[in-house]
Every structure is written in C-alpha cells, then in structure tokens.
Amino acid sequence: MKAILTEQQVALSIKRLAYEIYENHLNLDNTVIIGIQPRGIYLSDRIVEELKTIIGDKKIQYGKLDITFYRDDVRKSLHVANATDIPFSIENKHVVIIDDVLWTGRTIRSALDALLDFGRASTVELCVLIDRRFSRELPIHADYVGAAIDTFSSQKVIVRWKQKGDKDEVVLM
C-alpha cells in the first residue's frame, strides 16, 4: 500500500481545482457543476463548497448525475442506480463534470451520453482528483487534475473521504 495523496494534499488539491475552475469560468454565470454518482459526489461537494467561499454565497448551479442506465456493460454486471438530480437545463451552458478517479474513460463516456439528454451543452470539461494515465480505453482526457499517476491495471486506487468517516487520503493498493 502506497500513499498517493495525504490529507493535507487532498485539501490543497481541492482548493487548487476550485481555483482553476474559477479561473476559467469567472463568476460561474453560465457554468454548471455536475458530480458523477456515487463516488464523484464526495469530490464535487467539496469543490462546490470551496467555490462558494471564493465567490460568496452566489447560487452555484450544481447537479448530480447517475450514469448506471447508460453503461456499456449493462448485461455483464448489475449496478445499483443512484439518484440523478439536475434541476436546471444545461442547454448552452459550460458544464464541468466532476469524478474521483479517471481510469478507462468508460464512465465519462456514459456521462457524456447521459448529459445529452439534459440539453446541448456549450462546452463540457472534466475535473478529477486522480488521473490514472496510460490506461485509457477511450479517447477521453481530464481538464483539471488533482494528481496524475502511473499504475498497473492490477492495482487499485482507493480514495477515502472525511464525509464517509475516514480521513481524506488517496492510496494505491
């Protein structure tokens, strides 16, 4: 087991990711944040919290997306669906998708499909805490990255969150 990000590094990464999103989207007037269920929500909650401290209590459009019904392996394994909650249109908006780990890219592929059903976004960007490089199965990349790491496919990246009662950290098993 090897530590990738410590508690302090996770906190700094979240801060940095929030500032990077803020830098590219100033004021977030026409920007919406979408967290991917279930595990991306831990990160997106924290980034949205951070964004609120940066730009004040201005209402940030923040939704949650579950991609279970859009997976390409529906017949192979059953995943329990979580709630989708996108109470606004994304038509002509700048969308920032947030997930914890980018690995094969298949989850994000499904998310892009699912997003189409909520309107035609002006642009879509991806923000992840961990980018497992060189293991992509689809041409997908992240625009905001907490930490990029090189892994074998046999290894597991585990992200722990204080919201779940652990301390924030990322380890490689």
Binding site: F69, R71, V80, A83, T84, L116, D117, F118
Partner: peptide
C-alpha cells in the same frame, strides 16, 4: 430493489429526453 430502481426511472421520466439506452 425493484422499488428503489423504479424511483430512479421515475426521475428519468421527468427529463426532457425520457429515454435511456440500457436495453
């Protein structure tokens, strides 16, 4: 399991595009 999955599908049916590619 059926009832909780149905809750997620009910949300799908409120969307502008009321359709998913699952099957």
């Amino acid at each position: 399991l059926i009832l909780s999955t149905a809750e997620q599908f009910k949300e799908v049916l409120q969307r502008p595009v009321k359709k998913v590619p699952s099957l």
